[in-house]
Nucleic acid binder design. Structure first.
Length: 418
DNA sequence: TACATACAC
DNA sequence: TATGGTGTATGTA
């Protein structure tokens, strides 16, 4: 059985979820994609079995040792808790879909998705009631909702509206952090102080201002750190907000009942592992099983899990770091025609080169990413002594990597790291 | 460094 | 008919 869609959202009361899942399953079943997903799930189950076995091997002495490690680490993390800042996470509601509705008001009230038959970027709330989701292929969405209207993506438009929202964010925090076109983190500590307003009042005003400037709605979360603010912005979505006060007890009460999947950085796989190998579903259980986590995960991963259990997150504003990689990838229908594969490779190399020139970037490591006809993903890399940026160099290294993989039926991609 | 995974949007 | 593209982080060998 396939795993649940990754964003089974609220607002779905009175909806036949079983019927939706059956439609998704029936539509996917038997496809190459589906078979690959099953293979991946089998590997995950294997991994979970391995972790259970490792867990069972721990002696009483091991357990008490790791409990001590966890207890000490929890104290150290607690000492770093910072309740002095107020963070706001702003998240535009169904952003791409909302922008498209602004430019075509006849879409209002109708189920609509931005994207095409192979992939959907965003669905409006009317479409979500049918189970239509971001990252769902359009042909499945249409089975769920035959009336669904498809609108092609138009990034220029979304970038324009994104800039309008950022002009508003800037007024509340000149150093705000843009997380994507439709999300941002703002440290509103100073503006709250200067204007003697609460975080909630600032959030109300900011959302009103965003709406006046763009005609779009957003939701906001206000909390003592970014990790919590992000969780909070999802609680009263759409067009709502939620405030978590800067109080240790309030934070602990809030975080303890929270399902781990709500935390940014904990996805489908981690949720599955923690639940099936350790019986952890809530953040409180992260703390309770801290010893096991310290025994079986790396230092940094265990630290992350424990800090989640404590509701501790980043409160600093990191300076914008330079980017670490640039890539260009295209998926096309599978072929084993080598001439055609080299032609596709040359096209992608050209696109990558154009982007690198635009950004004034060059790289030393080139990674060729290959998607096989059966949806397996492989990557092959080379590092050269000197930096390169010309399409000839890119194609030279990429062709060499591709040649070593032939014959193969592919749908490729290109990545260059610097 | 090479490769695979996980995650976010 | 048909399951994306871009970037970051991390674990492991």
């Amino acid at each position: 059985m396939a795993l649940l869609p990754r964003n089974a959202k609220a607002g779905m009361e009175g909806v036949d979820k079983e019927k939706m899942q059956r439609i998704v399953y029936e539509t996917s079943k038997g496809s190459k994609y589906f078979e690959n997903e099953e293979k991946k799930e089998a590997l995950l189950r294997q991994k979970i079995e391995n972790m259970r076995a490792q867990r069972a091997k721990l002696s009483a002495a091991d357990l008490s040792h790791y409990q001590t490690v966890a207890d000490r680490r929890i104290l150290e993390l607690e000492a770093t808790r910072d309740l002095s800042r107020i963070w706001l996470h702003a998240d535009m509601d169904a952003f791409y879909a909302a922008v498209e509705t602004l430019s075509n008001p006849s879409l209002k009230g109708k189920p609509m998705a931005v994207g095409g038959m192979s992939m959907i970027s965003t669905a409006n709330y009317e479409a979500r009631r049918f189970g239509v989701r971001a990252a769902m292929p359009g042909f499945i969405a249409r089975k769920l909702c035959p009336e669904l209207i498809f609108v092609p993506t138009d990034f220029k438009k979304y970038t324009h509206y994104s800039e309008l929202t950022r002009k508003v964010f800037e007024k509340y925090d000149p150093n705000f952090m843009a997380a994507s076109l439709d999300e941002a983190y703002l440290d509103i500590t100073e503006v709250c102080k200067e204007r003697s307003m609460s975080g909630g009042e600032i959030a109300e005003e900011l959302r009103k201002c965003v709406n006046e400037e763009t005609g779009l709605t957003c939701s906001a979360g206000v909390a003592p750190n970014r990790l919590l603010a992000k969780v909070c912005s999802d609680i009263n979505k759409p067009n709502g907000q939620f405030v978590l006060t800067n109080d240790r007890m309030a934070v602990m009460t809030f975080i303890f009942s929270l399902p781990i999947r709500k935390i940014g950085g904990i996805g489908k796989v981690t949720e599955h592992i923690l639940r099936d190998a350790f019986g952890i579903s809530t953040c409180e259980e992260m703390l309770q099983k801290g010893g096991l986590l310290c025994a079986l995960f790396s230092h940094s991963t265990a630290d992350f899990f424990l800090s989640v259990g404590l509701g501790i997150g980043r409160t600093d504003t990191p300076q914008v770091s330079s980017r670490k990689s640039i890539s260009s990838e295209r998926t096309f229908s599978a072929t084993d025609d080598e001439t055609l594969l080299y032609q596709k490779l040359a096209d992608i190399a050209e696109m990558l080169c154009t982007d690198m020139k635009k950004g004034g970037l060059c790289g030393r490591t080139l990674t060729l990413k290959l998607k096989t006809a059966s949806f397996e993903v492989r990557s092959r890399a080379v590092t050269s002594e000197k930096y390169f940026s010309s399409s000839e160099d890119i194609l030279k290294y990429a062709s060499k990597l591709l040649k070593a993989e032939l014959p193969i039926s592919l749908r490729p991609t290109l990545v260059s790291f610097q």
